[in-house]
Simulated scan of single mutants.
Amino acid sequence: MFSSHFNDALSALAKTAAQRDRQGGHAAKEKALLRDAGLLRLAIPAKHGGDERSWPDIYRHVRALANVDSALAHVLAFHQLQVATVLIYGTSQQQCTWLRRTVDESGWWGNALNPRDARLQATPSPSQLSQDGYVLNGPKGFCSGTRGSHYLTVSARVNNHVQPVLGLLETAAPGISVKDDWNPMGQRQTDSGSVQFTQVKLPLSAVMRSEHAETTAFHTLRNCLAQLVLVNLFVGVAQGARNQARDYAIAHVKPWQGSGIENATDDPYLLRRMGEMQAQISGAALMADHAASLLQNAWQQGESLTAAGRAEVAVAVFEAKVMAHRCTLFATQEMFDVVGSRGTHADLGFDRFWRNVRTHTLHDPLDYKLQTLGRWAVHGEEPSAHNYN
């Protein structure tokens, strides 16, 4: 299913994941492994030199990477999300220019499009007939993958308009400063710090969507793509926690005194815990795959996608998000009852699984996902395309 280069990268990353989690910082060498494995081309259409993989296949790559390193899985997934952003909002010329460059330059995409952070302001030029476009000033937070990136997708507010302008920029453009200020308890190598924009020129040729443009159902599919990134990260981390707990139990865990068994892996309580993890993770993975399949079908419809079709995808994504959220918190906590007290040794780094997902599960409240699903179940009310990221 995966290329030998990707499998080699997984093996190399697994050996250093715990140590790098403690260190934090920018994983330049590790990102180079992913780049050299050809993973930056996954979502890029073949006509632009890419692999044009399906979204279910792309998410399988993200999930496999999250098994061993959820921070780099996040960076890789957000690269694909920015490519998708260009495909959703960009003109044919913008897609050809920026995506061909991505392939030819093996360039990483960073995300400065966080819609919840409205501090970045775009000032239109006096004449929209000119090529000046906008001037950007202000900060943007939670900018995943920006450090070490080559290109950025960016959103900025224009006066009092609700809809932001969306644009494309080189990370090294004058006036852009990527800050090294990401210091969370988990996901420590996602390069998700802030970016400061000072008198940055966004020419009209690099504007994907103006503040006046209409929003279609296909445009809002980006929200579903972003949510499925988190779903597959959660499932991947849960799988990684389960695998680590199993391997450690087989190699190191001793039977409890008075249990009457010779091998700890025959302990009925340990087996029950592993069985519960297995059931929850398998269920969440199947729901993630189902949502990805629906998303792929919607993606192929393009601008002909209807609001009802998009709602079907959103409901499946929300359902998968709820189950993946719950199963990953359960697995990353329950693994410690499997590995026992010796499994808490700091060098093992088993705590990183819980810290990583707890950092991510706070991305948006599960209560609002459940409320939306409740409105769908009771009233048939379609999920709003504008109330989640």
Rank of each mutant, 00 (worst) to 15 (best):
M323P: 00
E276Y: 07
L221Q: 04
G175L: 09
T215S: 07
A308K: 12
R272A: 10
A12F: 03
P56M: 03
T97Y: 08
S384E: 01
W256F: 07
M274C: 08
F197Q: 06
A307D: 15
A28V: 15
N7R: 15
E52H: 13
S210K: 07
R342V: 06
D364T: 10
A249D: 01
N111S: 13
S92Y: 00
R355L: 14
L10N: 08
R355Q: 13
E276T: 09
K321I: 00
Q199P: 06
A28F: 12
K47S: 11
N232F: 05
D364E: 10
P203K: 05
A112Y: 01
A18D: 06
A324F: 00
G193N: 06
Q227H: 10
I250T: 10
D247S: 13
D247R: 15
Y248T: 12
Q93Y: 06
Q128V: 10
S384N: 05
L76W: 01
L329D: 07
N263E: 13
D181N: 15
N67S: 03
T332D: 05
P124E: 02
L81Q: 07
S130R: 13
N137T: 14
L129K: 09
A377W: 04
R157N: 12
L81N: 12
R63M: 12
S384A: 10
K140N: 06
A284E: 01
P115N: 04
V317T: 15
G258F: 07
Y368G: 01
P164Q: 04
V200C: 14
Q300R: 13
L65Q: 06
N114A: 07
L33D: 02
N111V: 06
F142Y: 14
L166M: 14
L129S: 08
A173C: 11
V165L: 09
V154Y: 01
K140G: 02
N232P: 00
G25E: 04
A385R: 11
R355F: 09
Q296I: 10
T215F: 05
R222F: 09
T146Q: 06
Q23D: 13
L136R: 10
C143S: 06
E303H: 14
